[in-house]
């Protein structure tokens, strides 16, 4: 009647609730407060009491769910499905979206502190990853033929993916790059801009020259550059922008083409 899972989680729950009561009385609980969640009398020190009681309640909820599923035992699952033997785990195809989602979450966190635009960008990346993830999950179980599922998924999603991915990639490079340029000195910014342009150009040339290039190399380049841009963005964003001082007008000869300049060279 009581499954192993139930015994473990309910035992955990009972011990934690008992601990909460003991803790409540030991830390100044009054009357029946610790056994009535503070209804009549104090519960003692609140953080410890609340966390122990909450852990106990959550563990007991798990125990009730798990006993309802009979520990999700293979025999119970087979019985539920009305089959003799439970099916093996279904195949799940590989996907870029988990790593893109994680990257998006990281960008969002950076944006939360550094700039709202980056934050919105992170949310957009995460949302797109979630949509794509959902479509992958849908396609995985569309039919029993893996190739047909992949073709079905591409037919639906490819027309959206390519333009959106290109726009986003440019957006992230521009945003993180701008943090670096604003932090660097005037000449430094030119140097970094040149370096990033050379890198993008170099990768493009490499790919054009060797279209059969191993996809691991492409993945490595993209990952390294992505992480470098984010790390650079973090350091530069935290360090802040260099100081800009408006130019005083120097007369007609100089004009005011460059309204501001920095003194960080």
């Amino acid at each position: 009647m009581f499954t192993t899972g139930f015994k473990f989680y309910f035992g955990l729950a009972a011990a934690l609730v008992l601990s909460a009561v003991i803790y409540g009385y030991a830390t100044g609980g009054e009357h029946v407060g610790p056994i009535t969640w503070g209804w009549k009398g104090g519960v003692g020190e609140h953080i410890g009491y609340t966390m122990l009681m909450a852990s106990g309640v959550v563990a007991s909820a798990i125990s009730f769910v798990i006993v309802a599923f009979r520990d999700a035992d293979p025999s119970a699952q087979a019985h539920y499905l009305g089959v003799d033997e439970i099916v093996p785990t279904a195949t799940v195809t590989g996907s870029y979206w988990p790593v893109v989602g994680a990257f998006g979450a990281g960008v969002g966190l950076l944006g939360l502190v550094l700039t709202p635009v980056l934050f919105v960008g992170g949310i957009v990346i995460c949302s797109l990853a979630a949509i794509e993830w959902m479509m992958d999950a849908w396609a995985d179980r569309a039919t029993g033929d893996a190739e047909a599922n992949a073709a079905l998924r591409d037919r639906v999603m490819a027309p959206f993916e390519i333009p959106v991915a290109g726009t986003l990639a440019v957006g992230v490079i521009v945003l993180a790059g701008s943090r670096i340029f604003l932090n660097a000195s005037k000449n430094g910014a030119v140097f970094w801009a040149g370096l990033i342009a050379i890198l993008i150009f170099g990768i493009g040339v490499l790919y054009a020259a060797k279209p059969k290039m191993n996809r691991n190399i492409i993945a490595g380049l993209v990952l390294t550059c992505g992480l470098a841009v984010i790390a650079g963005g973090v350091v530069a964003g935290v360090d802040g922008e260099r100081e800009f001082h408006p130019h005083e007008p120097h007369g007609e000869d100089h004009g005011d083409d460059h309204a501001e300049d920095d003194h960080s060279e």
Binding site: I62, I66, F69, Q77, L81, V87, A90, T143
Partner: peptide, 21 residues
């Protein structure tokens, strides 16, 4: 095309139970 294979019926529920916790 063949029908998709049956999934284990409790996996999503158990996962959601832990996530809810």
């Amino acid at each position: 095309l063949p029908s998709p294979e049956l999934r284990r019926p409790r996996t999503v529920l158990v996962g959601t139970m832990f996530a809810s916790a």
